[in-house]
Simulated assay, not measured.
Amino acid sequence: MSAYSRTRRRATLTATAAACALAVTLAGCSGTTKNDAANETKEKAANATADPDAPLKKNLKIAFLPKQINNPYFTILDGSGIDTVKELGSTGKEVGSSDAKASSQVSYINTLVQQRQDAILIAANDPNSVCGSLKQALAQDIKVVTYDSDTAPECRDAFINQASSEEIGRSQIQNIAKQLGHKGEIAVLSATQNATNQNTWIEFMKDELKKPEYKEMKLVKVAYGDDDDQKSFQETQGLLKAYPNLKGIISPTTVGIAAASRYVSGSSYKGKVVINGLGTPNQMRAYVKDGTVEQFALWDPKKLGRLGAYVAAALVSGQITGAEGEKFTAGDLGEYTIGKDGEIILGPPTVFDKNNIDDFDF
């Protein structure tokens, strides 16, 4: 190498080092981190001003990521949401795994970010595990809406709650207590151990049981069926064998209540053990009509999916930012007001029994 070449090479290296040093001083030589970008995006959103009169944008890409695909509840919910997205002139789709694991959701979130979706709607299987990937979505200015089950507020723009969590949890105890005459041992058959909505409802159930009118009732076990039909069926069997004095099972998950009802309907426990919780009319109709189940509750998942589509489109269009007090109209569902921490409540659940179950088809 000539002296000239060596001199030129040293000059180039020196210039590069100086440029990097300057970059470090200003913003870091390697640039901002993903978390920094996510925080910057959330800060911009917090300072953004909603324009309720802004038209809904068309040709958006909106994806639904349920707790698991092939779950009848989410099939109805996401199907309604996708249909609504199409009505609004955009493209919707459902993606996800057949298991209810948070790790499975993470890989799908990452793919949706790479696909540059305009909005992601997710029913989180874990409040924290998906946050890293969701923050990356926010950093790319992708709107994130949680539905059915929430994450930490900083990981999304808005949360659509089926109904007040307190109302759902307390009503589960109130309903089964009436059936049991406020006496006896009960158990809960939940979904996954980390499901945000399930755990919140269960905490309100436990708090409700502390009231004097439930002094002769006892919660003996919280079991987890992982929103898997066969495991929920087996957990029901295990509960009834482990607690011979069990008088009732609350299953606040559509997979769980259907599996529990199926087991009880074909056993000697039919008519002796009360099954209550949250289910869809089409899943539960046979069990109501054969006397296995007297009543259960749920909101309309079609309306929840429809609301989700409107919220996502409104966020992308700038009609709302997710701030408390903002109002927007969700088509034929009417006007909604955003509550604390970006929560939007669909409305109170419906109680289904033999008198009204044939009025519903979902």
Rank of each mutant, 00 (worst) to 15 (best):
V24G: 12
A309G: 10
A158C: 11
F360T: 00
L209N: 06
Y336N: 05
L77M: 15
W299T: 09
Q295E: 07
T91C: 00
Q136Y: 00
Q237I: 01
V351C: 00
Y224W: 01
N128Y: 12
P252C: 05
R170L: 05
L298T: 06
A323R: 14
S80M: 03
G266F: 00
A27L: 11
Y287N: 04
Q295W: 03
T350R: 14
T33N: 03
A48W: 11
K221R: 15
G184K: 05
N282W: 01
C155R: 00
D99V: 15
S5E: 13
E167N: 12
A11S: 14
A258Q: 12
E335V: 11
S80W: 03
T41S: 12
V255F: 07
V316P: 09
G169A: 04
F74V: 05
K86F: 10
Q105E: 11
E154A: 10
F296C: 01
P72S: 01
R285G: 02
G79C: 04
G28R: 04
C131D: 08
Y108M: 06
E203D: 13
R262D: 07
G31W: 04
T75D: 12
V145Q: 14
N70F: 10
G169D: 09
K218M: 10
Y4K: 15
K221M: 09
Y214I: 06
A152F: 05
I173V: 12
E167P: 00
Q230P: 08
T84Y: 07
E213F: 02
